[in-house]
Simulated assay, not measured.
Amino acid sequence: MPGVRREGLSATLRGVKLYADRVPVALRQLVTDILVVIWVYLWIKVALWIHDVVEKLAVPGQKLESAGSGIADNLADAGGKVGRVPLVGDELTQPFNGAADAARSIADAGHQQQEFVAQLALILPALALSVPLALVLFLWLPLRLRWVRRAGVAAAVRADPAGQDLLALRALASQPLTELAKLGPDIAQSWRAGDPDAVAALAGLELRRLGLRRR
């Protein structure tokens, strides 16, 4: 069983065709792939920059929380000392306690502002990345994978007579009439008759469309 799996994996890898045989097509594919990688990389950098910029908005909230907490602690400490005054201590502590509560409210507002900025620092970069990544995942990648699949199958069968017949059939079904007409007005009839020259010409037309050479 392991040997069968290895043979199946090797056959799968042999059937994978990442780039065309013809130099102009292969060069265009390579340049496009590089540009897509650069496109994604630049948008990731933009998203990270947005994250860093938004996170700086949390600095005022940090200062507000720190100042509010410090004032509240000082007022609570002062109220505790005043509260030790005989007879009037309880009455004197009330203003300090009220001011300390107000300072804690300011500290809470600063903390909430930091939480809001933290959420914003996640949402905005995600929104910035969503459209570029959607273009790559739903437009470029399906087209690229479809070519890889079709080219891999075509490359695997192009040397086999039955495979050439399939390629010829594919050319008759998908090639423009102007391209088929260049092979002769009776190309379809010749293919139906099993003419090897017609089959080879049609197969070559389909291979050329995929950027592959005959083998």
Rank of each mutant, 00 (worst) to 15 (best):
L180V: 00
A181C: 04
L137W: 02
P142M: 03
A171D: 01
A103R: 01
A188Y: 10
L143C: 03
A102L: 15
P196N: 05
L120A: 08
V157P: 04
G163L: 09
A181L: 10
L167N: 02
L177T: 09
T93A: 06
L143Y: 03
L92T: 05
G194L: 07
A193K: 15
P176E: 07
Q94H: 10
A121S: 15
L124C: 06
L180N: 01
D165E: 14
D108W: 02
D160C: 09
H111Y: 14
A121N: 10
E115Y: 09
A173M: 07
W140D: 00
A155I: 02
A159D: 12
L143F: 05
A159L: 08
G98D: 12
V157H: 08
A118H: 11
L169W: 02
A168D: 04
A168N: 03
A103Q: 04
L183D: 09
D90V: 11
A126E: 09
D197H: 15
E179S: 05
P132Y: 04
Q94T: 13
A128M: 01
G184Q: 07
W140I: 03
D160G: 01
R146C: 06
V136E: 00
I106V: 15
P185R: 15
S190R: 15
P196W: 04
L127F: 06
G98I: 11
V131L: 12
D165K: 10
D160N: 14
A134V: 12
R104V: 10
V148N: 09
L139S: 09
S105P: 01
A171W: 03
G184D: 09
A100G: 14
A107M: 11
L133W: 12
L172I: 00
R144T: 07
R158W: 03
L180K: 01
L129S: 12
E115G: 15
D195R: 08
A134D: 06
P95S: 06
G98N: 10
A128E: 00
Q113M: 15
R192W: 13
A99K: 06
R104L: 08
A168M: 02
G98Y: 12
L180E: 04
P161F: 03
L172D: 00
L122A: 13
L145Q: 09
A155V: 03
A121T: 08
D186L: 10
G98T: 14
Q112S: 15
L135Q: 08
V131A: 11
F138L: 13
V153P: 00
G110V: 01
A118S: 10
F138K: 13
D108Q: 14
A162L: 14
L129P: 05
I187Y: 01
A102D: 14
F116G: 11
R150T: 11
P196C: 00
